[in-house]
Amino acid sequence: MKHWIMLGLAPLFLLTVACAKAPTDKLTAAEQAVNDARTAGAPAYLAEDFAKLESLVANAKKEIAEEEGKFAFLRDYEKAEQLLASAKADAAKVVIEAAKKKEEAKVAAVLAQQEAQASVKTTQALVAKAPVGKDRAAVEAIKADAEGLAASLAEVQAAMDAEDYLTAQTKAKAIQDKSQAVAKEIQGALAKVAGAKGKQGKTGK
């Protein structure tokens, strides 16, 4: 009798032992790897690869959820594990590549920022020399432009602080271009006035 009971319980025991467990540790590890990639700047600098990572983890989660909906002894997490393993392995590569690209973008942005700062400084120095009497409206407009350019440098810094180097670089480049145009305008005005004679007067308050 005892023998028969043992024989009946054996398959049940085997089934219980054979029940697959959800790969929560692997999921956590893969999610951590994706987070590392995010921190490394992958969403901005390696968007496609990062999206692929997210897609892998999302699919793995979907797969786990589907398997969890099945009877315990029918669950198979192999596919989910495969996806998570891919995500983790790819994430490690993405972290390195994204960090590299981010650093490159940072270097380019820092250079563009320095050039923009130098350009604005030159323009401001020229504005101080601008011939106040020469079309005062134009001079006031130039002054406003120079002030605007100087103020926009803060936006470059804000983008740098936010590690958005692409925005920082394009903004800095735009500032530099405009700054050079303004400087050219002032130099033209200075050249015109250089030959002019007479005193400078002032009325109309």
């Binding site: 020469k134 002019a196 007479g198 005193k199 400078q200 109309g204």
Partner: peptide, 12 residues
């Protein structure tokens, strides 16, 4: 103005 390019008008 003695020289128009050098005069400064603030509302005149």
């Amino acid at each position: 103005g003695e020289n128009r390019a050098l005069s400064e008008t603030l509302g005149c």
